[in-house]
């Protein structure tokens, strides 16, 4: 299995070295506000969703990879890349371990959710970028409405302006546990769908 992971990682790095280098430079900045958007670009334009869209998944499948192998290797690459750049950036810029920990958890939630969204979209034949991008816009809009904490009450004592979606939003993550469960559900749905349906062409 380690050979497969090594082969997959080597393939991604070799094919997209330039793009990954630029991404890494930006992701090293700990408080870089476009971090999630860059991760989104990586998911949709570098990893498995792009390979499926381009038909290059056929090359992987003609090698000793199963669908589960390529799915989880691609996800593992994403997680490794996101976490390592965050750790290095945190160390370089002197970010506290607590802060770094929360940032990493947030990044993992976002990455898992949007890897799931992109995979669901491309597996169902809707492409690797446009639909996930619309989901990203909808997510950023819906999550921004109202308030994302539960302790705001109006004068009648009922929650005021509380937006439950912001709790699970992969961008806003009002409640990290709820957002994690939502992201994991998207990721597992994508996996099951890809495993059963495979590529449509």
């Amino acid at each position: 299995m380690l050979n497969k992971v090594e082969a997959y990682f080597a393939k991604v790095i070799r094919e997209r070295a330039g793009f990954l280098l630029v991404l890494a430079l930006f992701l090293l900045m700990p408080r870089f506000s476009w971090r999630f958007f860059l991760l989104f670009l990586m998911i949709t334009l570098v990893l498995l969703p792009r390979d499926i869209h381009d038909g290059r998944i056929k090359i992987m499948m003609s090698l000793p990879f199963s669908r589960a192998n390529v799915f989880w290797c691609s996800y593992a690459f994403l997680v490794t890349f996101a976490v390592i750049t965050q750790l290095i950036g945190g160390a370089l810029f002197g970010i506290s371990i607590d802060m770094m920990g929360w940032n990493i958890i947030g990044t993992l939630i976002f990455s898992s959710a949007y890897f799931g969204v992109a995979m669901i979209s491309v597996t169902l034949g809707f492409g690797n970028f446009v639909i996930p991008f619309l989901v990203l816009i909808a997510d950023s809009f819906l999550g921004s409405i109202g308030k994302n904490w539960e302790f705001t009450y109006n004068f009648l004592g009922s929650p005021s302006g509380f937006n439950p979606y912001s709790m699970i939003s992969p961008i806003y993550q009002g409640n990290q546990i709820a957002a994690f469960i939502f992201a994991a559900t998207l990721l597992m749905t994508a996996y099951v769908l890809f495993e059963r349906k495979g590529t449509s062409r």
Binding site: A7, A10, K11, E15, R56, K58
Partner: peptide, 25 residues
């Protein structure tokens, strides 16, 4: 497997292929 379309990985040299196949087989 040798696929019909002879699709190749982007930017892969012959040596990259040899390394990958030797890892996988």
């Amino acid at each position: 497997v040798m696929n019909e379309e002879r699709r190749t990985f982007r930017r892969f040299t012959g040596s990259d292929y040899v390394k990958m196949w030797s890892l996988l087989y």
